[in-house]
Computed example of a mutant assay.
Amino acid sequence: MKINSQRLSKLFTDLVKIDSPSGEETRVIKYIKKYLRTLNVPAKQDSRGNLYARIPGKTGEAPLVLCAHLDTVEPGRGIVPVFKKGVFTSRGATILGADDKSGVAEILELLTTIKDGFVNERSIEILFTVDEERGATGARAVRPEWLKGREMLILDAGESGKITTAAPFIFEYEVELTGRAAHSGAEPEKGRNALLVAARAIADIPVGRIDDRSTANVGFLASGQAINAVPASATFKGEIRSHERSRADKIFAQTKAAVESAAKPLGVRASIHRELWCEGYCYSHTDPHIKKAVKLMKLVGIRPRLKVSGGASDANTLVGKDFRPLDIGAGYKNPHMTTETVKLKDMVRVVELLQRYVND
């Protein structure tokens, strides 16, 4: 069925005009629930605010789950979308919000075509998540038992045609150092400088691009209250990303060794805590999930591009909940920037792709 591009354009415009920075998605959820009611599609929310819906199909095949997130980054308040020569931009002082409201609009337009007469052979389940941009906390609260399908498309990979084949395991760590305070002028020898240990440790731990599939970073350091006092405590935090969990473990071991090596000579106690922030995943190019996406994209005129990601999305979290998520491009470019754009024709093609998916 031909996509109503004017309707899709209006739907997208309406969505981006609704402020929904992470943690403040209530208004956009209210809009979507009202829209779904016009389509006679019931929806429900979990305790975190994630929105679920289901549209039955003609076959007994397990449903295809379509997912997009509702929140946006800052500056994302008072967005004024501009449409010129087929391209959406913001007026310039804010992001556009196409990450990820283009994906939301595309899914809603698919459902609207069903009301207009398009027949979906396969059942469809919808998952709109909250708070993706602040660590996928919405996805962490998803109730898998509320969804029957396990094959999932997430419309959040950016440019049209992008297919994310792999994303890294991400570990966060925190180092707490405890020394002894002293006056730096009167009796510095009685002090045990925790900040000095932190500085020496950070200088020695692996940071930056470690190899072609691993990175590490230190992004937070806190210590001291006065320049004439030996700091008794220091805390720093970092992350390790790798497409191989064993490689991430080795980098953390090097990090821990650097901290302990810096702390011991100065008599400073070190406590190191590590937490898995999200799972990694990897699809081979011959995986049926990938092959289907490539085939169907070509049928609707989208050029597929297989990409390995160094970042994370809801897919990283949902793969740990027994889903098989595939993150594909919703069409937008320059996410998180005031130069963010999306072409209407690319959004139309994504809706056509979704139509192919539910009837393949």
Score class of each variant (00 low, 15 high):
98 A>T: 08
207 V>N: 05
198 A>G: 10
268 V>N: 00
109 E>Q: 13
58 K>P: 00
263 A>E: 01
18 I>L: 02
322 D>F: 11
90 S>W: 02
213 R>A: 06
69 H>T: 05
322 D>K: 15
245 R>K: 15
163 I>Q: 02
359 N>Q: 09
256 K>D: 08
207 V>I: 15
169 F>L: 07
211 D>H: 09
165 T>A: 09
133 E>N: 13
84 K>S: 09
65 V>I: 14
200 R>N: 14
103 G>D: 02
279 E>N: 13
5 S>Q: 14
237 K>R: 15
166 A>V: 04
94 T>C: 12
156 D>L: 08
229 A>C: 13
290 I>L: 07
346 D>Q: 04
85 K>L: 09
40 N>T: 10
34 K>V: 03
191 G>P: 03
143 R>L: 15
174 E>S: 12
336 H>T: 08
234 A>I: 07
328 I>R: 00
45 Q>D: 01
114 I>V: 15
1 M>H: 13
2 K>P: 08
67 C>Y: 01
342 V>N: 00
217 N>G: 00
231 P>W: 12
120 N>F: 03
82 V>N: 01
195 L>N: 05
341 T>D: 05
224 G>Q: 12
206 P>I: 10
235 T>E: 10
328 I>P: 00
53 A>F: 11
103 G>I: 06
171 F>R: 13
166 A>N: 06
46 D>R: 01
248 A>P: 02
14 D>Q: 11
304 P>W: 13
129 T>R: 08
303 R>C: 09
341 T>H: 03
37 R>Q: 14
239 E>K: 07
216 A>Q: 03
358 V>G: 09
316 N>V: 00
118 F>D: 04
13 T>E: 15
354 L>A: 07
40 N>Y: 13
174 E>Y: 05
327 D>L: 14
78 G>V: 10
139 A>W: 02
204 D>V: 00
284 S>G: 13
139 A>E: 03
263 A>N: 03
164 T>C: 14
90 S>V: 03
355 Q>I: 12
10 K>R: 15
58 K>M: 08
257 A>W: 01
15 L>T: 00
309 S>W: 08
249 D>M: 02
220 F>D: 11
216 A>P: 04
307 K>C: 12
37 R>C: 10
249 D>I: 01
257 A>G: 01
313 S>L: 08
269 R>G: 00
299 L>E: 15
116 D>N: 14
23 G>L: 14
273 H>Q: 13
45 Q>F: 05
36 L>Y: 12
182 A>N: 01
209 R>H: 10
56 P>N: 15
352 E>C: 11
114 I>T: 12
69 H>Y: 09
245 R>H: 11
167 A>R: 07
162 K>S: 14
89 T>I: 02
297 M>R: 04
59 T>W: 07
349 R>T: 10
90 S>D: 05
275 E>S: 11
2 K>D: 13
74 E>I: 12
244 E>D: 15
297 M>N: 03
255 T>F: 04
131 D>A: 15
248 A>S: 05
259 V>A: 00
118 F>R: 03
